[in-house]
Design a protein around this nucleic acid. Structure first.
Lengths: 182, 182
DNA sequence: CTCATATTGATACTCAGTCCCAGTTCGACG
DNA sequence: CGTCGAACTGGGACTGAGTATCAATATGAG
């Protein structure tokens, strides 16, 4: 149901652009009222970004599964396999999605806000590994690690889109994240 | 003139919160019409964020001044001295500003958008240093460096706000940026 | 069958941001 | 001194997102 509306919204956004698509239009095509639409999705963009909802916990789980003595940066890189592997069989789908997200300012903004939620989940895990002689919330370290990793992820996806998927997501993310540790 | 409106907007935002302040209200206090306000500032939040307008070129200049053989990460850290040193004599002013920015989602969003502009200026400079065997736009490396550095900067400022300025901006940024290279 | 609850939709509202048009100021030029 | 034009300003209307209220309808338990 949510998925159906999401699919319609994604199609319309791709066809006409996000800004030229009104909530009214999405609701009409999905056979529900504007009011009901906003009951399901907080904003217009959320309809498209719903597919990311489970990713935060997924990332946290993947990070927890990494060996505790691994360098956090490496663990984060491996946790991101969850993302680089999405639609591995049909990368065109992910490509279209990220094109949609990266090309529209509002969409990118909402996307980054969702990622803020990921950070909240990942930061405590990283903080636990770094060993906390500094009280949490006063040490920017863990959050800096996570935020930078997410930044690298976004840069990778951005590059992936702009080269039309010619280079693999994994290769781009490897490059992005390794340049920081050299 | 712009500065005057900006000061009024900043005061109102701080007093009542950004969301509870309308453009109408700012315009009224500043003695101009709603229409004219939007002629000066693209959005409500821009009125407050105008003070960042010169920072992009400032950062680029600071980065250019660093020795070419210095590690880009170090150069970026040093370029950020331009920012950590703002209002060095009256840090309370910067503290209030960042509190305003970090505590409101919309404001934070606009702030990050402005920083995107910085990135566009800094990425070419970093790319030039890294030596470009890979055609620009296909190598996520330079942008990953810059985006991560900016992420570290933001995390530092966020921490600075949440600890009420108890630790210096420079110390926090040093810590944030060094944790990536260990 | 009935009552309670949840879902829906219609309507109205606020506010941001855009657009167009008319009035004003002000300096250049005759 | 008068006038023309450009730049700035304000008024007002418009679109569209997001919120709140309320009535109508469906659903499910007893």
């Amino acid at each position: 149901m949510r998925a159906e509306v999401s699919a319609i919204a994604t199609r319309l956004f791709a066809e006409q652009g996000c800004d030229n698509t009104t909530v009214e239009q999405i609701a009409a095509e999905a056979g529900l009222s504007r009011t009901t639409f906003f009951r399901y999705f907080g904003t217009k963009e959320d309809a498209v970004l719903t597919c990311l909802d489970d990713l935060g916990p997924g990332l946290a789980a993947a990070l927890s599964d990494r060996p505790a003595d691994e360098h956090p940066w490496t663990s984060l890189r491996r946790a991101f396999d969850v993302i680089t592997g999405l639609n591995g069989d049909a990368p065109g789908k992910s490509l279209a999605f990220h094109r949609l997200v990266e090309e529209n300012p509002t969409m990118r903004t909402r996307h980054r806000e969702k990622q803020q939620g990921w950070e909240e989940l990942l930061v405590p895990l990283v903080a636990a590994r770094l060993g906390g002689d500094v009280p949490p919330g006063r040490d920017p370290g863990p959050r800096a690690l996570v935020a930078s990793a997410v930044a690298c992820l976004n840069v990778s996806m951005q590059t992936w889109v702009s080269c039309d998927g010619a280079v693999s997501r994994d290769a781009l993310l490897d490059r992005a994240m390794s340049v920081l540790t050299e």
